[in-house]
Amino acid sequence: MSHKKPFLPEKTCVTCGLPFSWRKKWEKNWETVKYCSDRCRKNKK
């Protein structure tokens, strides 16, 4: 039997333009998250 995740909100990364999903570590500051990863955050334009 496969496990299906519930619907998770998505955003588009400001740097790379790819969509990324909500993560538990962003639970308290999801409104301010702009980048999909530390790599994109460090390489912002």
Rank of each mutant, 00 (worst) to 15 (best):
M1Y: 03
M1D: 12
S2A: 13
S2N: 09
S2Y: 03
H3T: 04
H3L: 12
H3A: 04
H3N: 08
H3Y: 10
K4E: 12
K5Q: 11
P6A: 13
P6F: 04
P6N: 11
P6D: 11
F7A: 14
F7L: 13
L8C: 13
E10C: 08
E10V: 13
E10F: 06
K11E: 02
K11R: 14
K11F: 00
T12S: 10
T12Q: 12
T12M: 10
T12Y: 05
C13D: 15
C13P: 02
V14I: 10
V14D: 15
V14S: 01
T15S: 14
T15I: 02
T15L: 07
T15A: 13
T15G: 11
C16P: 06
C16Q: 05
C16W: 02
C16H: 03
C16F: 05
C16R: 02
G17R: 03
G17K: 02
G17W: 03
G17P: 05
L18R: 11
L18D: 12
L18C: 07
P19I: 03
P19Q: 11
P19W: 01
F20G: 12
F20M: 10
F20W: 10
S21D: 08
S21F: 06
S21V: 09
W22T: 02
R23K: 15
K24I: 05
K24Q: 14
K24H: 10
K24V: 07
K25Q: 14
K25A: 13
K25E: 15
K25L: 10
W26G: 00
W26V: 00
W26I: 00
W26Y: 15
W26L: 00
E27R: 10
E27P: 00
E27C: 04
E27D: 11
E27Y: 00
E27S: 11
E27W: 00
K28N: 14
K28M: 10
K28C: 01
K28E: 15
K28Q: 14
N29C: 06
W30D: 12
W30Y: 11
E31A: 12
E31D: 15
E31V: 04
T32F: 06
T32D: 15
T32A: 12
T32H: 09
T32V: 11
T32P: 00
T32Q: 08
T32Y: 06
V33N: 01
V33Q: 03
V33W: 01
V33G: 01
K34E: 15
K34I: 05
Y35R: 01
Y35G: 01
Y35I: 04
Y35N: 07
Y35T: 02
Y35A: 04
C36P: 04
C36F: 02
C36I: 00
C36H: 01
S37R: 01
S37A: 11
D38H: 09
D38N: 15
D38K: 14
D38L: 06
D38R: 12
R39E: 13
R39C: 07
R39P: 02
R39K: 12
C40R: 07
C40I: 04
R41Q: 13
R41M: 09
R41F: 08
R41P: 02
R41A: 14
R41L: 14
K42E: 13
K42I: 05
N43R: 08
N43L: 15
N43T: 06
N43Q: 14
K44T: 06
K44Q: 15
K44D: 10
K44N: 12
K44I: 08
K45C: 04
K45T: 05
K45W: 04
K45V: 01
K45M: 06
K45Q: 11
K45I: 03
